[in-house]
């Protein structure tokens, strides 16, 4: 059976892509060619059947109520104040800062106290033995705590809390983490916490606020009988081992202290299981601040939607 040569125009006709002249010619052809006419009718009928079928399914499977209910329920799920772009720049500057302060002393006068909302809390495993919900966590990847909470963690993890100020601290040990009033809250914690860089931050550990300050290894206020207490060398005698509990818990981030936050090896690591990996230039977990944003492991690059 010979195929009508005009059939190729059906698609263009359906899509209204024929010129006026071509369209008139094809309409004329349709009057005389039942083959093309049938084909066109079938195409139009199939299109509308597809539309109707999907519309029927959609009507029965709408989730708009569920979406809004979930959004209203999520008190902590306020839209994050940081953009991904912002994160990229943040990490670049954070680690650039780390490089500098690891080498030279910084002096920041008059530490102003800052109280504001925390934008986002990101976490990253610092060694390959770290687990999240009992599954091994990829070292190079950054996770948003908001999408994981409550997250059961075991190992050595770097937390980055960002708001107007940023704080980077390290947890070594076990704990379940969630976000409470914009702050990371650690429960069932058998872990140590250490501020690595950035602003002083108060976190919640086993129900108590814990103030993390520069160059301190702060044992959490829980029974540490199975953990060796840290040999903490304090930069000043008045820096408490355990933060006072009088602080408000709502996202308190103090400004940069007047003395540098030096990243040096902790005198003793209290993590029961794993030695803490150090974020130092040259170590495996060190992030090269000169890395291009595109190659930055912290960059959350969306997939390119190219239809493939």
């Amino acid at each position: 059976m010979n195929r009508c040569p005009e059939k190729d125009k059906i698609v263009l006709f359906c899509e209204r892509e024929l010129s006026d002249v071509e369209q008139a010619q094809f309409e004329l052809h349709l009057k005389t060619c039942s083959e093309c006419r049938l084909e066109l009718e079938q195409t139009i009928a199939d299109d509308s059947l597809l539309r109707e079928g999907v519309e029927e399914a959609f009507t029965r499977h709408r989730v708009s109520q569920r979406i809004m209910a979930q959004i209203r329920n999520e008190k902590t799920a306020r839209p994050a104040t940081d953009s991904y772009k912002g994160w990229r720049y943040f990490w670049l500057t954070a680690f650039a800062l780390l490089t500098i302060i690891a080498v030279i002393s910084l002096y920041t006068p008059s530490p102003a106290k800052y109280q504001g909302r925390v934008g986002a809390i990101m976490l990253q495993a610092l060694n390959e033995e770290t687990t999240l919900q009992n599954e091994k966590l990829a070292v190079a990847k950054i996770y948003n705590l908001e999408t994981l909470a409550p997250a059961s963690l075991d190992g050595c993890i770097l937390f980055t809390v960002s708001g107007d100020k940023t704080s980077v601290f390290k947890m070594s040990g076990q704990a379940t983490v969630r976000i409470n009033n914009g702050l990371p809250e650690f429960s069932d914690a058998k872990a140590t916490f250490e501020l690595v860089s950035g602003a002083i931050i108060t976190i919640l550990v086993n129900g108590n606020p814990l103030k993390l300050e520069r160059k301190t290894m702060i044992p959490a206020p829980f029974d540490t009988s199975d953990l060796e207490p840290d040999q903490v060398s304090l930069p000043a005698a008045n820096v408490p081992l355990v933060a006072s509990t009088s602080e408000q818990t709502d996202a308190i981030i103090d400004d940069m202290p007047e003395e540098p936050c030096i990243v040096d090896k902790p005198a003793g690591n209290a993590s029961a299981s794993e030695p803490a990996a150090e974020v130092m230039p040259g170590s495996d977990t060190w992030i090269d601040p000169t890395q291009a944003p595109g190659n930055n492991p912290f960059a959350d690059e969306p997939l390119k939607l190219d239809g493939n």
């Binding site: 399914a57 959004i71 999520e74 839209p79 953009s83 991904y84």
Partner: peptide, 29 residues
């Protein structure tokens, strides 16, 4: 719709998509 096994899964991912969009709304360019 044409990418998943069942409509329950479609519903779930539609919901997740919007919730995730809401959570990261500030990062929308």
């Amino acid at each position: 719709l044409t990418r998943l096994n069942d409509l329950q899964e479609v519903e779930d991912i539609v919901q997740e998509t919007f919730v995730k969009a809401f959570r990261h709304l500030a990062s929308f360019d």
